[in-house]
Structures are given as structure tokens and as C-alpha cells.
Design a protein around this nucleic acid. Structure first.
Lengths: 253, 253
DNA sequence: CGGGTCTTTGAAGATAGTCAATTTAGGTGG
DNA sequence: CCACCTAAATTGACTATCTTCAAAGACCCG
């Protein structure tokens, strides 16, 4: 019964959604045991993606969504003349590939920024389950909608915020997502380069670097290349919330 | 051909998807007659929204999606300190409100930019139909995905393009959508103010105005306040595709 | 240990923003 | 129908922010 198709190690390789530590963050939120069982049969587990490898590329046929189990990914698109835009960073429990559903072709690239593991969710199998597990469908639609909301907040960031506000928003967003996963939220390793951060935030890498330095001088953070420590997250949050408040005058209440 | 000839007659008040001239642009693409019939029973037709009125606001409970029948809408969000970002413009056949599915609360405002008519699609009714009309569900997911792809292209625009490229992209996008609806694509009336265009494009209204003037001086367009005529759309397209192309072709990578 | 990549920092330059004045349009009411 | 009034748009001059170009320093991986 527990036959594992491509087992290298018996049993341990077959990671079940029902056992997965991410089950409350990932697609199957709120399923009952029976439903977990059904989902398990659909998911192709634990494909390993090495740092730098592509999960999929622009133009490839869409067949599956991917849930990050471990590791870190970015997605990006390119303009016709080759300029690059990072459209998102993805950590464990997050779903990649929803762009591909619009016309069954991936409209972005997905690249691992460190050695990673993903669960593959073949979409036609998933679709078959929708009838049987309405919760699953509802949650999937919810995830797509969240992606839309997230993107619109990035539009706000790119359209209205100054460099310092953008970087502060970026750091606080990472921090919050790490906390939600039980990781330290005030001290972490950046998985992406300055250039990738800049691309995501609509800034040049030099501006990102300078802004990190400025934050450090202000005492908001400690930067040591990829290692970041948030020493004054409140101040960073304040920067995000109201840029109008003069950054010079720091009234602490 | 776009407008409904029967609209003013009383019996025609009940506008049926099956008769609607937008049926090939809107949600029910590819349904068969039976399925159209089912969809008709679910849709609350033709709510009128006057210019300036809100279809919904941030924080309101989400219950329905809205399909634009006639008219023009914008959606926008505000940062905590009150800065405003227009996140989209919507014309006939386009669906508004998909942001609300993430947590059953609208995360943006939707405002009519001219007197408009919408079809209301109560989402719980729609959901009940999914089991019976798989095509409908698939198409809805497709529409959500398209919204994600659209938003990511706006991220590219905001993150990488210069003011002239942004405005050219904006004009060509409008033009293309008007053409798809059978309207003149090289001559149209802008429904939004310079400020709203600027907000969408991450520019100030003065910059939008100046860039319009620059385009006119270059002979690409005729601007007369809200009235726009594209006299050289090819050149505008070239601006969008490769801003560098104007000068020497610079190859990198 | 060394080559290459990534990062930091400085100085100069460009693009878009800000502030301000003027013109034009569109809606309202006499 | 016209005059008015307010809101929107245009244009100019100046400034701030971010980019570009350049060089030097730090790290990582084989």
C-alpha cells in the first residue's frame, strides 16, 4: 500500500501532505484526513532543484503548479528588449506557477536561489479533485486572489514609494514571512543578490547597497553582505507605513 | 454592434448572457446554450453606476464579482499614509473584484469613471455552478491567472520603463483593448484624468502632461485634452518594445 | 590560493518631481 | 444662452532622487 514509485530511500521519501509541517501554510489548509489522503495520491513529491536551476521557463507548456517544500525561488519576466523584472520571491509553503493557467504557457521563469525541494501538483489531477474536495478548490482560488493582492501591493510600492521605503517594506515582508514559518524573523540570510533585490524593487543594485548602508548607519539594521539583522524593526515599519513622517526626526513614543 | 439595440425596451431589461454582445470577451466564453441558460439564472443584470460612484470600497465584504457591460472603471488602493495607486482600468467585458476572494473582503476600491452598467455575479451562486459547468470554472481560473499576468507586466513597466515608454505602453494597451471590442483603436476618448493615468503609471500628472506634449511634437499622436488620436502607432510600439532601439542597438549579456 | 563575482562607495549626470503661474474646459445657475 | 466658477491641464524653472560610470574591496568556490 505504501508503494513508493521512485523510491531511493523507502518510505521517508514519500512525504505526505498530512505529515508535512507546511500543511497549514500550503494549499491543503483545512482539509480533513480523508481529503488529505486523496491529495496525497495526486502530488508528486520532492523534486530537487539545485541552486540556479530553472523550475520552468517562459514559453514552456504549463502542466503543474509547484509548492516550495524547502529552499527559495524567484520568478522573473523580461521585456522585449531584454530588461529583467523579478516578480516575486517564494519560500516554503508558497505556490509557484499560477501565471501559467491563463493560456497553458508559463509567462515567467522560476529559478531556485538555493538548493530546493518542491512538490509538483499536476493541474489536471488537481482539477479532478475539485469536485470531490470543494475546500481545496476554494482554497486554491483564495491563493490566486492573494497573489493578485500581493501584486497590487507591489504596484503601490513601485509606483509611490522612495528607495528607503521600498527596501524597508521588502525587509519587513521577508521578516513577517519567516516568522510565519517559525524562523527567526529579526536575523536572516538573504538568498538573493543586490541586483535581484533591486530588480524586484525597481532600483539599481547600487541604490540597494547604498540604502542598506544608510539603514546600518541609522542603526536600523546590521548588514554583513547576505546576513541581515533587524535591530530596529519598529523604525523600519514606520518608514513603510508613513513615508511623509520626516525620517530625520525620530519621535519615539 | 457593441451596444444592445433592445436595451431601452422594457422586455429587454433582462439582459441575457446568451444575447450579450460581450459573451466572447466576458466570463462565459465557450459555453453551450444549456450552460448559458444556467448562467442567466445566476446573474443579476444591469446595475447602473453613475460617474464617480463606487462599485465597492476597501474593507467591504466581498460577495460578488462584477462584469462591466458598458462604461469604464478604475480600481485603486491607498497606502497607510494616504498615497493612492490606481491598480487597473476596466472596460466592457472585463471582470472586477477578484481581489476580494482572498479573504472575503475587498482590498481595493472600484470607481466608475463614466456612467456605467455592470452585471453582478454573486460568487456563491457562481461556485454552485462550477460543478455543473466545468468550462465556466476553468475559464474563471483562467481569468484570475490573466489578472496575475497583467499585474506582473505592470510591475515590469513600473520597475524598468522610462516615462515615455510607460505612456506609450499605456496608450497601446488601451488601443488594443478597444480594437478587441470593435471600437476605433486609433482615436478615442480618455475616461481618466492625467492624475489617474499618472497614478497607474507611477508618474506625476505633470510628467504625463509633458509626455503627451512631447509625443504630439514628435508627431506620434494628436492630443486634445481627453481626445487622443494615434497618428503613428508603430513608433509608439517601438518605444514600448525596445526603448534602446531608437539609438544604437546595444547588445548585452 | 586565485580568479571571478558580488558588493561597496564616490562623483557626475539624467530623469522625474516639486512648486508655481497661466490657460482651458466643463458644469451650474441666473 | 451666457457668464461664471471650479477643476483639470499645460508649461516653466528649479530641485531631489536615483542612475550611470568607475574603481576598489570582500567573499566564495573550486
Amino acid at each position: 500500500m505504501l508503494d513508493c514509485q521512485n523510491c531511493e530511500k523507502p518510505q521517508a521519501l514519500k512525504i505526505l501532505c498530512s505529515n508535512c509541517s507546511l500543511r497549514e501554510l500550503c494549499l491543503p489548509v483545512g482539509l480533513n484526513p480523508d481529503e488529505f489522503e486523496q491529495l496525497n495520491t495526486v502530488i508528486r513529491q520532492s523534486r530537487h532543484i539545485k541552486k540556479g536551476e530553472y523550475l520552468f521557463r517562459v514559453g514552456e507548456e504549463f502542466t503543474s503548479l509547484f509548492a516550495v517544500r524547502t529552499g527559495f525561488f524567484k520568478t522573473n519576466i523580461a521585456s522585449l528588449d531584454g530588461r529583467d523584472q523579478v516578480t516575486g520571491f517564494f519560500m516554503s509553503g508558497e505556490l509557484i506557477g499560477m501565471d501559467g493557467l491563463s493560456n497553458n504557457v508559463h509567462s515567467c521563469n522560476a529559478v531556485a536561489l538555493e538548493d530546493s525541494e518542491v512538490c509538483e501538483l499536476p493541474f489536471d489531477r488537481l482539477e479532478e479533485l475539485y469536485g470531490e474536495i470543494p475546500t481545496l478548490q476554494r482554497h486554491f482560488i483564495r491563493l490566486m486572489s492573494s497573489e493578485i493582492v500581493r501584486d497590487q501591493n507591489v504596484m503601490l510600492l513601485l509606483g509611490n514609494m522612495k528607495s528607503e521605503e521600498r527596501l524597508a517594506a521588502f525587509l519587513m515582508n521577508l521578516s513577517q514571512r519567516l516568522r510565519a514559518r517559525g524562523f527567526a524573523s529579526n536575523e536572516f540570510i538573504l538568498r538573493m543578490s543586490r541586483e535581484e533585490i533591486g530588480s524586484y524593487l525597481g532600483l539599481k543594485l547600487e541604490t540597494v547597497s547604498r540604502t542598506f548602508s544608510k539603514f546600518q548607519q541609522s542603526g536600523w539594521i546590521d548588514v554583513n553582505h547576505k546576513h541581515i539583522r533587524l535591530t530596529n524593526p519598529l523604525e523600519l515599519n514606520r518608514l513603510v507605513a508613513g513615508s511623509n513622517s520626516n525620517t530625520e526626526t525620530q519621535e519615539e513614543e
